[in-house]
């Protein structure tokens, strides 16, 4: 059996015990700074940021700015695209609106998992991705991001930072390789 063969060779060859280092952490900055950094980096990674300053302004803003977008914060949209729904149908999605759980200032990323979309393909197959994020839910860096996640995991989760991109042709940056061509974060 390959499994045992591999494990046996490892046991024979592995390095002498070395301790697992302590959790790496950095001091967390004040929220205002984190928010500013998040906005700045988001732009650098090709995303666009809106700050509607307050949950009460969110829905109106989103409806006005992204008319016709499929809003997955609504139950009826959620039910229209269940896990088993056709790929062809999903590929017609166009613009979608999702809610993210938190953001990361140092790289402009947001975290979403299966509780934020009914079908895993949704955030990737959409042409235009609009993410709503509570501006109080922004942490400094990936250390705090993962400590926030802890071992709370479901089947699939993703950090998204900006639109899909490639630079595979002569290092020229092109947005919209396979996933979203346009990417927006609406802070509330």
């Amino acid at each position: 059996m390959d499994r045992n063969k591999i494990l046996q060779t490892i046991r024979k060859n592995k390095a002498q015990a070395a301790p697992l280092p302590k959790t790496f952490s950095t001091p967390e900055e004040e929220p205002k700074k984190l928010l500013d950094r998040f906005k700045e980096i988001l732009q650098q990674v090709g995303g666009e940021c809106f700050d509607v300053k307050g949950a009460e302004n969110l829905n109106l803003f989103v409806e006005e700015h992204f008319p016709g977008a499929k809003d997955f914060r609504k139950k009826e949209t959620w039910e229209k695209y269940p896990p088993g729904c056709g790929k062809e149908e999903l590929s017609q999605l166009g613009a979608v609106i999702l809610e993210a759980q938190f953001g990361v200032a140092e790289n402009g990323a947001v975290w979403m998992d299966e509780s934020n979309f009914p079908n895993r393909l949704v955030p990737f197959i959409a042409e235009k991705l609009v993410v709503c994020l509570d501006s109080e839910q922004i942490c400094g860096n990936m250390h705090t991001a993962y400590s926030r996640l802890g071992n709370r995991t479901n089947g699939f989760g993703v950090f998204v930072s900006g639109p899909s991109k490639t630079a595979d042709i002569e290092q020229n940056l092109v947005l919209g390789a396979h996933g979203a061509k346009e990417y927006f974060v609406v802070l509330f």
């Binding site: 140092e106 790289n107 402009g108 400590s147 479901n154 699939f156 998204v160």
Partner: peptide
């Protein structure tokens, strides 16, 4: 947290890749 901070910065000079996907189930 440690590795995702290092990887894209070292690789392409980005703060993180556009997608960092965690497949569990």
């Amino acid at each position: 947290g440690v590795f995702t901070r290092l990887l894209a910065r070292s690789a392409t000079g980005q703060p993180v890749t556009a997608y960092t996907s965690h497949y569990l189930a």
